[in-house]
Simulated scan of single mutants.
Amino acid sequence: MSNLIASQKVMQHYLAALLTEEEQTEQVVLAEQKKQQLNELLSQAVVSTSPAVTKTSVQPDTKAQVKADTEAKALAALKERFAVAEKTQQLQQRDVPVAERLATPVKAEPQQPQVAAPVLKDYRQGKFQALFFDVAGLKVAVPLKELGGIHQMGKISSLIGKPEWFKGVMLYREQKINTVDTACWVMPEKYDAMLQEKLNYQYVIMLGNSDWGLCCETLINTYVLEQDDVKWREVGGKRPWMAGLIKKHMCVLVDVDAMIDLLNRGLDISA
């Protein structure tokens, strides 16, 4: 019993570290974006309000006054641009045409090349179901719509020259399944001889339409999740394979496509 409690505490610390790192990454990216926008607005405001000054029109005793007037105009212009930008953003979020509501006309900015928005996966819209399973005390979840099937563990043939986490090839009917030692892939820093000896893989969780399967010890259950139940991974980071963290269950939600890409390239979580 003491070993089980200790194992659960280790997994909780591990997941808490994942969540803290993802939140810090998001905060840094958002702060940098806000800082860049502020610098651009300030630069534009100063340039647009700076008067043309000639040597003959400005006397030495009026330079301080000209500088003060310039700074005051720049600050006023900056405040006005912030007010217009904030009002525009609020109206856009309410899906109200900006041109019909703004009293002050906004000067059209040069159009930037449009980048196609990433297509949201089905499970990122409304409720969705996920399968929860257990690997060495760590709970992992896969969206049901990204699940390719579940097979009982069968005979596995190991191959030479493969990564440590590549357990081998399992035949299911006429399909060759590349099995992944999930504990070794997800927790390489904790994977030692003692952990390896305790593992008792029973099932193989297929990833989408690929030939990759994750070995697991126990199938826990399927749950219906709301979007707010997940701490989604919104920005780039070290773990592209992780779609997010399911807060209530302290559980990793797998981004199946990203994980397949890493496996195809022979990379594990440390990549």
Rank of each mutant, 00 (worst) to 15 (best):
5 I>T: 09
13 H>D: 14
14 Y>D: 05
20 T>F: 07
28 V>N: 05
31 A>F: 04
37 Q>V: 08
48 S>V: 04
55 K>C: 07
62 T>R: 15
63 K>D: 00
65 Q>R: 13
66 V>L: 13
67 K>F: 12
69 D>Q: 10
69 D>F: 09
71 E>V: 13
72 A>C: 07
73 K>V: 00
74 A>W: 05
74 A>V: 04
75 L>P: 06
89 Q>K: 10
92 Q>M: 15
92 Q>C: 07
93 Q>A: 13
95 D>N: 15
96 V>L: 14
108 A>W: 03
114 Q>R: 10
115 V>L: 14
122 D>N: 11
123 Y>A: 06
126 G>S: 07
127 K>V: 06
127 K>G: 04
132 F>G: 08
136 A>D: 10
144 L>S: 09
151 H>N: 15
157 S>D: 06
160 I>G: 14
161 G>Q: 03
164 E>P: 02
164 E>G: 08
166 F>W: 04
168 G>L: 07
169 V>H: 02
180 V>E: 02
185 W>P: 00
186 V>G: 01
187 M>C: 08
188 P>V: 02
188 P>L: 01
190 K>Y: 15
195 L>H: 01
197 E>I: 02
198 K>R: 15
201 Y>K: 01
202 Q>S: 12
211 D>P: 00
212 W>C: 02
215 C>T: 07
218 T>D: 14
222 T>C: 12
225 L>D: 06
231 K>D: 08
232 W>G: 00
234 E>H: 13
239 R>N: 11
240 P>H: 05
243 A>G: 08
245 L>G: 06
248 K>N: 11
251 C>Y: 01
255 D>Q: 06
256 V>I: 06
271 A>T: 03
